[in-house]
Write a protein that binds this DNA or RNA. Sequence first.
DNA 1: TTCCGAATTAACCAACTGGTCAACTTCCCT
DNA 2: AGGGAAGTTGACCAGTTGGTTAATTCGGAA
Lengths: 207, 207
Amino acid sequence: MGRTSDAKIRLIEAMIELIWTGSYGSTSVDQICERAGVKKGSFYHFFESKTDLALTGIEHSWLEHRRELDQTFSPVVPPLERILNCFRNFRKEQEELLAKHGRVLGCPIHSLGAEISTVDDRLRNKLQEILSQFILYYECAVRDADAQGIIEAPDASALARIVFAYSEGLLLHARMWNDLSYLDEFESGAMIILGVTKRSPTGVKKK
Amino acid sequence: MGRTSDAKIRLIEAMIELIWTGSYGSTSVDQICERAGVKKGSFYHFFESKTDLALTGIEHSWLEHRRELDQTFSPVVPPLERILNCFRNFRKEQEELLAKHGRVLGCPIHSLGAEISTVDDRLRNKLQEILSQFILYYECAVRDADAQGIIEAPDASALARIVFAYSEGLLLHARMWNDLSYLDEFESGAMIILGVTKRSPTGVKKK
DNA sequence: TTCCGAATTAACCAACTGGTCAACTTCCCT
DNA sequence: AGGGAAGTTGACCAGTTGGTTAATTCGGAA
């Protein structure tokens, strides 16, 4: 019934890209429509507001990203490898973004969160929800590493949050300096935080 | 020659507050003027653009903040205490902001940096400059701690950047969740990163 | 084949954006 | 005391903002 259209997904993709390469505030509805090749009337046919599109778009990308994370953090992979591979994937993604946009873009969730968390409640809640889910991956890996005696982590959740906060800080740094090389520090940094010395290779008991 | 005025500083303070409690994009020149009790004509008498005011404002607050940091990071204070005290001051400041604005506001430099680093070059450069200077405090403290045998840090600069990235990640988390308690994790987190166990009190040789 | 609901379009809106300007007031310094 | 530089004011600007509307065009299913 009625005709079909891919305008909705085009709008979502355009918004994600514009927010990521710029900011929420610097992204206007007109810009989104132009990039998506959609008239403004159509925009408001599919979404009831700019916030609504952002919400849908973020949810959409997160669902996509989660599928990748589920593979990266598969229990089959050695726990610390999961975390390192996850960040290696980040790095690869940022490389592609640099090639495409000439800019290291960092983590869109955090950049957006920093910008709008005092401004838009609905957006903030959604971002919180996503980040909370994200940390679970780290937490699970840390707990497994502890259980396997690879590291000593009496409080896996706390340690995961440290690694997480650190990684977000790094990503932001890379965005601000437009420099991928900061991301290379993650591997050694994470090992320090997790209490694994360079001398004892991943997966081998320390001490 | 001519009359004097405090409109300039009022504009600076209004803008800092508005950016901090909101965002750069959500802060308009009209808003700034209204809060400062200054007409727009006067605004453009003192500043040539919104960016220009932001630049001046950031520089201004940083210069103020530096004086505090110079005390906190005095070589007289035991190195690790400097870092902890610095973060304790952050926490205290955030407490005041929470009481005043009902919100944990985090680090304005990083929030702003996340928002505008792909949008405004001049602003980004200024923020880079400030953050680079900030890291020097941590770096110096870490190097001293290493020299005094309190910690083992062959690469003080790298370790300082880890602590720094971690602290920024935490601050952002606290802003997004509007929750001070995340900041309490810093103390134990920093100790883990710096390789100081809880059992060996600060300032006492480890191992 | 027809028909109904979904998609598209362009024209429109008021409020607001950052920024300008010329006239005017104040008051410091000589 | 009064000249002149610094500060103030409100009216003004063109462009943009997020959002609305009614008329129109399409296309999938009966």
